[in-house]
């Protein structure tokens, strides 16, 4: 029976990480037979997509499999088609699954800490965005510097700082640039500095 490369990954992801490390071209018949024996039929219903690792800057390719019935990610592994990592991952990359919804430690609600409070409160997005925008505007309008000591027009804001981030996508970085430059911020930096 023929098994495509993509299906092979899913099968191997389900039946054991060891197989995922096997090189291409091995006889996958036994794996398939083993999967059949276990009555694992998810391989036909998993949706796969490619991604890139979220840690260092090597840029290793990943294959992410999500169960198309439940919508949950069931496996993340190295992309053997990727020319840099050729399927290999380090300990962190191989654990990327634990950054997903499977990890109960994930933040899932907006949390707010009020002045002098000793606890977090859960809040809805609309409230948070509205409060943040009001605070940004009030601080900016109070601190806006139209001219410097020499009388030069500077249109800048020195009482709000921005940090980050090198851990978000290029398009998000572009969006942040628009936000911080439109506000007039000059205290702008991120992890690249450190």
């Amino acid at each position: 029976m023929s098994v495509t490369r993509r299906e092979f990954f899913i099968v191997s992801g389900l039946v054991g990480a060891g197989m995922a490390l096997s090189s291409l071209g091995v006889d996958v018949g036994p794996v398939k037979a083993f999967a059949d024996e276990l009555k694992i039929d998810k391989m036909k219903s998993a949706k796969t997509s490619t991604s890139v690792c979220a840690y260092c800057s090597v840029g290793c390719g990943l294959i992410v499999s999500a169960d198309s019935k439940t919508g949950n990610i069931i496996n993340i592994e190295g992309d053997s088609d990727h020319p840099i990592n050729e399927g290999a991952l380090c300990a962190k990359g191989a654990s990327l699954f634990q950054t997903t919804a499977s990890n109960p430690n994930r933040l899932t609600k907006v949390l707010y800490r009020a002045p002098y409070s000793d606890k977090w409160q859960e809040k809805p997005w609309d409230w948070a965005i509205s409060e943040i925008a009001k605070k940004v505007k009030a601080t900016r309008d109070a601190g806006f510097v139209e001219k410097n000591d020499k009388g030069q027009v500077v249109n800048r804001v020195e009482n709000i700082a921005h940090l980050g981030s090198s851990n978000i996508d290029n398009e998000e970085i572009a969006a942040l640039n628009i936000l911080v430059r439109s506000l007039g911020l000059v205290y702008i930096d991120h992890q690249a500095r450190i």
Binding site: K135, A142, I160, A161, H162, S165, S166, N167, H190
Partner: peptide, 11 residues
Amino acid sequence: GRIKGMFVFSQ
């Protein structure tokens, strides 16, 4: 005490 507000994205 001169900076009053701060954004820290993903770090």
